[in-house]
Design a protein around this nucleic acid. Structure first.
Length: 332
DNA sequence: TCATTTTACTAGTTTACATCA
DNA sequence: CCTGATGTAAACTAGTAAAAT
């Protein structure tokens, strides 16, 4: 899990989306997530890859848990559904999805690759193609694999795919989430489906994939937002406390103005200017270390105070905590 | 180079079907 | 057993972008 490292998210989070994720049709779905889809949306298991700049940019072709049959949607649901379909099929004694061989061959011979231009399509730009009434009739009959009397009404029958058909389609989808015309025809022939059905299945499958991805992305961004909000809250509080301390006269009298402070980039200790006699007498960082700590060029101290609460002394050799505020707390 | 057509896709919707209370 | 609500998947529609003509 990437988001469990909240402290990493705090300041160095990069929320970049994959390039063209929503614009390039071909690449769009290739973004994927390693989500545990067996749990739907509630238990999204973010497997967001920390090595990538964007957690959303891993490819679908990578084997993700939920791109497999058993994980998407859920193994139980799918198996259950498959069992249902199988039972139905068995009871009916005929697989209604099976396309009559002649029809399948006819469609294959047509060699049409376009979804909407396929004669198999009753949808899409159908009206433009309705001139081919003969082929449409063939389509209508063969697509349902049912008798002509049922074909009379305009209600479209939705025929669930069998377990085997779904499995093969899933397998194929794992290999490539889009199909070229040849693959589509081959798959349709193998499964006894119309190419249009195979195509629709892939379209819907891509849509489901994307939906899942969106859910994962949403979850991730939500967590990022929470983390950043928390960090922001913490920093605001810190600022407030620092301001309060700064306004306190007691503190103010003891404190060297921040402009006189410098921090050694190598040891991250705060140094006082060498002009400070008190600091020099106390054996200040200047002599604990390999080089002189001076205020940055052009930074003239507004005033020199005898005691610098932030400066380390030789006696107190412990490194100053990274945050001055923490140092102040530890002193009190 | 520009206009038109074709192709392949997406997002959103509809519909049929299964399940469950 | 019936019925309505609900979820899911197959199928559809409208639209877009890119390639082809």
């Amino acid at each position: 899990m990437m988001v469990e490292k909240d402290q990493d998210l705090g300041l160095s989070l990069s929320l970049s989306f994959p390039e063209k994720v929503m614009t390039n049709n071909n690449n769009m779905i290739r973004t994927s997530a390693a989500a545990d889809c067996s749990s739907g949306t509630a238990k999204l298991q973010l497997n967001l890859m920390p090595t990538l700049a964007s957690p959303f940019s891993h490819l679908l072709h990578q084997k993700t848990p939920w791109s497999t049959n058993e994980a998407f949607p859920s193994s139980s649901d799918r198996n259950l559904e498959a069992c249902r379909v199988e039972t139905r099929t068995f009871l009916k004694g005929i697989d209604v999805n099976r396309l009559p061989a002649a029809a399948a061959d006819a469609e294959e011979e047509a060699g049409v690759s376009s979804p909407n231009s396929t004669l198999s399509s009753i949808s899409g730009k159908r009206c433009e193609r309705e001139a081919n009434g003969e082929d449409l009739d063939l389509e209508r009959t063969s697509s349902r694999g049912i008798s002509d009397e049922e074909d009379g009404d305009n209600s479209r029958k939705k025929l669930r795919l069998s377990k085997d058909q779904s499995a093969v389609l899933e397998e194929s989808f794992k290999e490539h989430n889009t199909l070229n015309p040849k693959q589509k025809l081959a798959l349709a022939k193998r499964l006894g489906l119309r190419p249009r059905q195979v195509e629709v299945w892939f379209q819907n499958r891509r849509a489901r994939t994307k939906l899942k991805q969106t859910e994962v992305d949403c979850e991730y961004l939500k967590r990022c937002c929470e983390s950043l909000t928390e960090e922001n809250r913490r920093l605001q509080k810190e600022v407030q406390e620092l301001r309060a301390l700064k306004l306190s006269p007691q503190f103010y009298m003891q404190m060297t103005p921040p402009t006189t402070l410098t921090m050694c980039p190598s040891c991250e200790r705060v140094a006082v200017p060498p002009s400070s006699s008190a600091a020099a007498a106390a054996g200040t960082p200047a002599d604990h270390h390999h080089h002189q700590h001076r205020p940055p060029h052009g930074m003239v101290p507004a005033r020199t105070l005898p005691f610098n609460p932030w400066a380390t002394t030789a006696a107190a050799a412990t490194p100053i905590p990274h945050r001055p505020f923490d140092a102040l707390h530890s002193r009190s």
